[in-house]
Design a protein around this nucleic acid. Sequence first.
DNA 1: CATGAATGAGCCTTCATTCAT
DNA 2: GATGAATGAAGGCTCATTCAT
Lengths: 206, 206, 206, 206
Amino acid sequence: MQKKKVPSMVKDEQLIKKRREQMIKGAVSLFTEKGFHRTTTREIAKQSGFSIGTLYEYIGAKEDVLYLVCDAIYEEVRDRLKQYLGTNTSGVERLKEAVAAYFKVIDEMEDEVLVMYQETKSLPKEALKYVLQKEMEMNDMIEQIVRDCVEEDAIALTNEEIKMLAHNILVKGQMWTFRRWALQKEFTLEQYTQLQLKFLLTGLKR
Amino acid sequence: MQKKKVPSMVKDEQLIKKRREQMIKGAVSLFTEKGFHRTTTREIAKQSGFSIGTLYEYIGAKEDVLYLVCDAIYEEVRDRLKQYLGTNTSGVERLKEAVAAYFKVIDEMEDEVLVMYQETKSLPKEALKYVLQKEMEMNDMIEQIVRDCVEEDAIALTNEEIKMLAHNILVKGQMWTFRRWALQKEFTLEQYTQLQLKFLLTGLKR
Amino acid sequence: MQKKKVPSMVKDEQLIKKRREQMIKGAVSLFTEKGFHRTTTREIAKQSGFSIGTLYEYIGAKEDVLYLVCDAIYEEVRDRLKQYLGTNTSGVERLKEAVAAYFKVIDEMEDEVLVMYQETKSLPKEALKYVLQKEMEMNDMIEQIVRDCVEEDAIALTNEEIKMLAHNILVKGQMWTFRRWALQKEFTLEQYTQLQLKFLLTGLKR
Amino acid sequence: MQKKKVPSMVKDEQLIKKRREQMIKGAVSLFTEKGFHRTTTREIAKQSGFSIGTLYEYIGAKEDVLYLVCDAIYEEVRDRLKQYLGTNTSGVERLKEAVAAYFKVIDEMEDEVLVMYQETKSLPKEALKYVLQKEMEMNDMIEQIVRDCVEEDAIALTNEEIKMLAHNILVKGQMWTFRRWALQKEFTLEQYTQLQLKFLLTGLKR
DNA sequence: CATGAATGAGCCTTCATTCAT
DNA sequence: GATGAATGAAGGCTCATTCAT
């Protein structure tokens, strides 16, 4: 699927990038605080450091901001994840490292992930599809890591089980944010990671 | 915490109950389709089968509708769950049955649960607290079932593990709705239940 | 001009009178507190001791309540004034007594007079005319008393002066209510009366 | 007391002033015709020559319009009055001129004064206080003129009498508007002024 | 006669978007 | 490119009035 083209009146690609970065940063903080719908375009413009007129030089509609935000977050989560993913280990160990890395990324980008997670549904259909595809790519990344384990005979899983496991891992990451009101009261990230890994893996080893 | 009193101009308690049931039903279908913020009070009234004026005879503000919806869903999930929970089995078997029952309830109330799940954050602070508490009660219910298993020596878990497991089970139920775009394409409820039970339990047995 | 007919669904004239008295009493207290426009018909009904449905059995529209209130107040002011007006004196003495009596009535009915005074303009045209006519009758009453003085040669005034004096007296009564935030801080009714009489009369005597 | 700050989204102070002047002009004509409560914000916007959206760029709430109107009128009355007040005369003559000037101003601003006079009570509490204070300033202005006469030995009055006289003069000005339905039928402004001056002064001279 | 639930026109206000400067 | 004043559709909510019981 094509990356959605967010329209801009401005030619200078460099400038577009810069302005949109300001925008995303401002928007995330506002969305975190009051959600997408309760945030006005004026507020976004102000928080981004420019006028409402300028905001609309770089987007076509308010929803584009949300799209940009979601897109950027996915990108960053993926990039950071790749960075953390040392490939020097293998088998279950690699899976554990991957999960821990994923959780770490999520924790670092708590607010962003939560926003993305809660507001995605407000995207217009086209954008939603695209973002959902990004989510599936994330899923595929995780799935691949699991699949590697299986192929290395480190664990034995059917194809369906692999898919399910990937979903589970993904959600366990997300729930660290959307259930933080309960989880982060009881566990540190490390505890959370260890416990979840235990639940995830125990019995999976040969 | 006190149940939030939603104000009504109408005195007949019976009627209030009836109208609010209409309201909740209408609202859920709309919230499912377009979300809380994109749904107008006029639409809610119409879908509920009465006028905008009448709607406001039974609520004080739009947010009250959301609260009523969330409250009703929790209540119904809990009631149905209790109904399904046959107490004739014990140990791990009982846990499995409970999880299956819980998943079944979630599946039956898909739309409702999804709405509640996605829109809860739009509640005003007081109402949010109350609803979050309901969520914790659900958590406690699951936790108790797990705890029973542990006390029967059916499984061995630390206190923290019990808590985490309860969270996991709860979320695994919810994700059936909020990831349905992926999960329900690949799995039937039965498959989903079986697979999740397998992941949940394998290795937990003595 | 005809007294405006306020429509009623009820036949029993006795009952109409009773209910409307309740209504006027309730309405005055509410209008005093929040003004005609900010008072709802529901509030009037409640304060009057019956339901909104019953209210509309005795009036045709909200404005009728205001009309009824204004009419009743004029009536009462006039009645009380007549009562106070001992006819045993004559000349300037009688004028002074009349003014003092008038001021006393105003003071006793402060709230009512103020309401009438401030809300009259909200009456529908027809009713306004009628009420304004009542005001003119009041004017005439005062004028007559002044005119008597002149005819008795107690004071010398042209016809125009008589008219103006009547207006002045009337307004001096009303201002005791609508400037009470200033006047009643500085003067008692007695002081106010004495001072105003002095201003009114000094120099008028032969 | 601080002048109430009416909020505006627009930054250009010059523009704010201009728009608010349009607004006040439009609002006065509407309030005169139908009163504050019966006038809608849309009507105000239209009459002012801009859209409802623009109206709200210059005020925070409908009541602000009323406040702006009242404030502006007081200001203008005071300014005009100062202008008319030639200081070349003294004693009773000066008082007479002042009263005549005041009446003239009132007559010129009939509608405005009447509006202010009748709708003041609809102001929110804070604004009401502020406007009442303006009224007291007016009072003080008149009082000072009277006091000057007394100090010049032109007339002899106790302190209380001075205060009362100021109130009387003020009200005699206002009544020219709120009793115009009667007074302006019978008198021209000049006649009214002469007669009132006569009543006011006769006997006050040494 | 009394009641009060139902109605919907209409109000105030917000805010995404445009466009002249 | 940047600005921010202008716009008006649309939303939440109120309340005078009606009418079935």
